[in-house]
Design a protein around this nucleic acid. Structure first.
Lengths: 194, 194
DNA sequence: GCGCCTTTATGATCTGGATCATGTTTTACA
DNA sequence: TGTAAAACATGATCCAGATCATAAAGGCGC
């Protein structure tokens, strides 16, 4: 798919080590980032140092377009979760991609729509719902792309950082949901049932 | 701009009275809605009846695309704020618009990016920041498209429904921000200073 | 298998903002 | 321009979840 095409077109692949920071808030966007291998997280960090995970991006996905497209400084950090290979496509190249690759433009629109869907869902949860409800909604959303019978590969801390809750609250919440039969657990892991 | 083109192309303009509901959560998306005149709000409503304002859309803007594009049922209500004239463009027509109007596709991508920016900003606020900070961020964002010296045209209740706070908290918060000189008020209205 | 770091667990206390109650002031429009 | 409705205001109480503290399991490299 896309990534191979980019390499063919001569874009350089750059390696990033775990925990390195690809960009931080306030920086003026220069590139869009296509992940060849590895994983990154996009997080905002409050004055008190609390992380909020805006998104997690994996091989085959890209990130950093919105800020570039509307020409505003980044709001978030993007930090490397696992050693990664990433292709940086500069502004002009990205615009060319949108204009000249007919499918890419449509795929981008759908990608942005999916992210909006997720953020709208989470906004409603954070604004209106209590811990238990928030957690259940997030877990169900995340389980949708886990194979039946497999475990959710997020720690309690990560669930906390995605819901704006604290680890302790997530731990207690997960127990509660499990005891109510709303989620299924195997050996302390949340598992997609049925 | 776009709206005129749509009318030329023979799309019918439909009238909606204030308070009527254009669609509700769970409905399968069939159209994208272009506002010729008037104003609507997109809101999610919790089980306890609390509204969260996901967005406000005015003349010249459109809404309802993301759900249509990714083919998922709506998450939110869209409710008419003021008597409106709205052009409904069905799925096929909208896809045609994207494919055939070269500028439209790019404009849509930027629109989606702007909405993502706003939602990311608010997610960070709701997840990590206290009432006062939340309010200040929202107010500054909203003031950006108010003329210098003009007042913000949102009620305390609306600010509450955009921040996930309660009216009383917004009222107290606005006073506090004003007393600290972080926002400027004239006759009880928040005004864009400088 | 042993030690060390990460993750999960659980109890006790504290607090920001919700909730409830009851005005007062502004705005809309008849 | 009078009046009802909407918006703003303020005090008192309450509570979900944060915070703090301390410990038990898991995982993983050597």
């Amino acid at each position: 798919m896309e990534i191979r095409r980019l390499i063919e077109k001569g874009f350089a692949v750059k390696k990033f080590r775990k925990d390195s920071i690809i960009y931080e808030p306030g920086m003026q966007p220069k590139n869009v980032y296509f992940i060849k291998t590895g994983e990154v997280r996009m997080v905002t960090i409050s004055d008190e140092g609390k992380e909020f995970i805006q998104g997690v991006f994996k091989a085959g996905q890209y990130f950093g377009e919105p800020a570039l497209l509307i020409n505003r400084p980044y709001l978030a950090y993007t930090i490397v979760n696992k050693d990664s290979e990433i292709i940086q496509v500069a502004k002009d190249g990205f615009f060319l991609l949108i204009e000249e690759e007919p499918d890419f433009s449509m795929a981008l629109i759908k990608t942005l729509s999916n992210r909006l869907f997720y953020k709208s869902m989470m906004l409603e949860e954070l604004a209106n719902e209590k811990a238990e409800h928030r957690l259940l909604t997030l877990i169900n959303y995340l389980l949708a792309d886990v194979e039946v019978g497999n475990a959710l590969r997020f720690t309690r801390q990560e669930l906390a950082d995605m819901t704006g809750l604290r680890v302790e609250t997530v731990i207690r919440g997960v127990k509660l949901l499990s005891s109510k039969g709303l989620i299924f657990m195997v050996k302390g892991k949340i598992v997609r049932g049925m």
